[in-house]
Write a protein that binds this DNA or RNA. Structure first.
Lengths: 138, 138
DNA sequence: CTTGACTCTGTGCTATACCCCAGAGTGTAA
DNA sequence: TTACACTCTGGGGTATAGCACAGAGTCAAG
């Protein structure tokens, strides 16, 4: 009843997820999305969920994750139980650190926006917060 | 009184900021940090502020900014007034979007961590939040 | 059953963000 | 004043994240 749409080939998937076809192939090679079986001399059909998955990857990239890290996040979402708990917690903390960093920059920008209208050399501590030791120290 | 330290040459700067020397040279070429004048047949001396500046760059990178974007942020911090207001606001909004995205993932991870102890196939909507249209739509 | 749009496989090219190295010069501690 | 560690300049190499394209195959509308 909801399945009379044309099959989701790679080109249609690319269009739906708003990425280049080659990007999808790249993600397949890297193991971020599964390449469906090829029906012996035909074109591959992708599940609808692939669209969201690819969008997720693009979003996560903009948030500073590498494809390798995103792969881990996706694996978490897929396997989703057992001993992945600790990895989930680790990732959660990484994300919390990122949020803290962004809030720091945001606060500095807010300062910048509100305090200096046309007055000049009150030098905003733009860098100060983020460059402190202890933040995201590795 | 507080200036009897050895001069901050590139090697010492690199050590202080915990980056490779070549990274500093790279940032100079890209215009993220100013290359000090070379004292005619000698070694360059860097201001102490360079340390924080480089650390800021590294932090910002981990938060998903490219060097080009970080350069803009730094310019904001340097010039810091006049008509950069609008750019600051733009950046502020970008950051807010990033924070929202990270909070979404974090919430999903929290779900994952708390709800599935040993129970299995309740599939967490890990991807759902982030892949929605409207989030960071470009 | 032809034709045009699409897919498949493989290879190669691009941009970003670095790292490494050679060969020449420089600084400084012994 | 001589080692030797460091710097400078220039060039090349690497990993990541793709994009582009060729040549062959496939699908489907007319």
């Amino acid at each position: 009843m909801t399945k009379n749409n044309p099959p989701l080939t790679i080109g249609r998937l690319a269009k739906a997820a708003n990425v280049n076809i080659e990007t999808i192939r790249h993600y397949q090679r890297k193991g971020l999305i599964v390449e469906p079986e090829k029906p012996l001399g035909g074109f591959r059909h992708y599940p609808d969920t692939s669209v969201d998955r690819i969008r997720f990857v693009k979003r996560a990239q903009q948030l500073g994750f590498s494809l390798e890290e995103i792969k881990q996040l996706l694996t978490l979402g897929d396997q989703h139980c057992g001993d992945v708990q600790s990895l989930a917690k680790e990732k959660r903390n990484e994300i919390q650190q990122k949020i803290a960093g962004l809030l720091t920059i945001q606060a500095a920008l807010d300062d910048l926006i509100s305090t200096c209208h046309t007055d000049d050399t009150t030098h905003c501590g733009f860098i100060d917060g983020l460059s402190q030791k202890g933040f995201l120290e590795k």
